[in-house]
């Protein structure tokens, strides 16, 4: 009587011996191209688009201000606020904040000409708020502003 040869079971499936190497390559890739998050964003910022965007000047020290509607609307309301280093501040609080942040920098880089303020604001924010912030920054001598924006690919150059 003829026997049917049953197919051998596939058994192992994909060989996994190279898996650690693959994962390590991925890991190294991410370690190289990314950088640590400085702070947790507590506001929604959908940044505006522009055509003339340039890379941020890395030679300068950067202090970041986030402006947008809080993510947790139940606790903080639905009006745009300023986030500076994991807390919300009023426009007048910028004076103190900037003084603190400046103090954290190396002594030879504390001059306002070495510092730029990155404004990362939601595109729906009222300019009145930004104007207030800029007025205060101007008053305390920080005049270099960097408006974070995304490259607009649709608009023709």
């Amino acid at each position: 009587m003829g026997k049917f040869r049953t197919k051998k079971k596939g058994g192992e499936g994909i060989p996994t011996s190279a898996l650690p190497d693959i994962i390590f390559i991925l890991l190294f890739f991410f370690m190289v191209v990314t950088k640590m998050k400085k702070q947790e964003k507590m506001v929604d910022t959908h940044i505006p688009e522009a055509t003339q965007v340039v890379k941020k000047n890395e030679a300068l020290q950067t202090i970041e201000l986030y402006i947008g509607v809080p993510k947790d609307k139940g606790a903080f309301g639905d009006q745009p606020v300023i986030q500076a280093n994991d807390r919300f501040i009023t426009p007048n609080g910028i004076r103190q904040f900037m003084a603190e942040e400046r103090g954290k920098l190396p002594i030879d880089k504390q001059s306002p000409s070495n510092i730029q303020v990155a404004i990362i604001a939601d595109d729906e924010v009222d300019m009145g708020k930004i104007n207030d912030i800029e007025k205060i920054l101007k008053d305390i001598g920080f005049r270099k502003i960097f408006y974070k924006a995304a490259k607009n690919h649709q608009a023709s150059l």
Binding site: F30, V33, T34, K35, M36, K37, I47, A50, Q52, V53, V54, K55, K56, N57, Q116, A118, E134, L137, K138, R143, K144, I145, F146, Y147, K148, A149, A150, K151
Partner: peptide
């Protein structure tokens, strides 16, 4: 814990 550095924007100097 990391993010892509995507730091592009417009520079401006206040008066």
């Amino acid at each position: 814990s990391t993010e892509m550095p995507n730091e592009k924007g417009l520079n401006f100097t206040l008066p």
